[in-house]
């Protein structure tokens, strides 16, 4: 993969802290993702990977530090050096350009695959239903499910559901996609079909932040690999490079377990 130092910075985290009560989950995360890059985040469970990802679209509030997308602080306005909490409406507007895919899919079970994909454009953006439906079918075809638009999620396999979820996120035309362990809830033989869709998406130039246990995906599709452990980015770099020579003991141990 080419390094893209000239590309604009998409996601910038500086010294991000987050605690649940007295449990400090994030203890100063620093991360920089440039436009078009795929950043993969790996690390042991409970290390704060998912929490950090959820902070990027403000599903979780950060306690201190700075977190911005496209140079805009997430969840706060800054005026004359002072921070103001954003109104829900403004946070919702920020989220529109950030797509998110969840570990457990979270498809809307009472809606068909096509209705799931249409939901965002129709409800949030007020798109015409007919146009949105057509677009939904296009997006479903892109993830290989063009003929399953009328199926309910319960009639689809896990891999198919996750691909619908990806199409649903893409329907809002995001320029940043967040993936929270997208293949962890899948049967092993279904992982490949989801990774394939993600790889296509990466090739199309989408900026992606992917929390994953799939080291192979990180190696092939990733531009950056960050190892988050105990609430900090313990190691970061070009995937093939740092996978070949992990510096810290903990990263070595971790790789020993997952590879």
């Amino acid at each position: 993969m080419t390094t893209s130092q000239d590309k604009p910075i998409k996601v910038l985290a500086e010294n991000v802290h987050k605690a649940y009560g007295r449990n400090e989950v994030l203890r100063g995360i620093d991360l920089e993702v440039r436009a078009g890059e795929v950043a993969c985040i790996v690390g042991p469970s409970g290390g704060g990977k998912s929490t950090f990802l959820r902070c990027i679209n403000h599903l979780e509030k950060i306690d201190s530090g700075r977190l911005s997308v496209d140079g805009e602080l997430i969840g706060y306005h800054q005026r004359s050096g002072k921070l103001y909490e954003m109104r829900d409406k403004d946070v919702a507007a920020q989220r529109r350009s950030i797509g998110m895919v969840f570990q457990r899919f979270n498809l809307f079970p009472h809606k068909t695959a096509a209705e799931n994909v249409m939901a965002g454009p129709v409800v949030v953006r007020g798109d015409n239903r007919k146009v949105a439906k057509q677009r939904a079918i296009e997006l479903l075809s892109k993830v290989g499910l063009g003929d399953r638009g009328d199926s309910y999620p319960s009639q689809l396999s896990g891999g198919q559901q996750q691909r619908v979820a990806i199409a649903r996120a893409l329907a809002m035309d995001p320029d940043l996609m967040l993936f929270d362990e997208p293949t962890s809830a899948l049967d092993p033989e279904l992982v490949g079909e989801v990774l394939e869709v993600m790889q296509q998406l990466a090739k199309s130039g989408m900026t992606m932040v992917v929390v994953t246990h799939e080291i192979g995906f990180a190696r092939e599709a990733g531009d950056i690999l960050a190892f988050i452990d105990a609430g900090v980015v313990a190691e970061i770099g070009e995937p093939t490079e740092i996978l070949a020579n992990p510096k810290s003991r903990r990263f070595q141990d971790f790789l020993g377990k997952v590879l």
Partner: peptide, 27 residues
Amino acid sequence: VDEGQEEAATALGFSRLQTLRHIVLPQ
């Protein structure tokens, strides 16, 4: 209704009331 439903809608940019009306109440 599973919390993940609300999260998924929120992540798409739904407001609280839109989430309630289109996602949570029907379920």
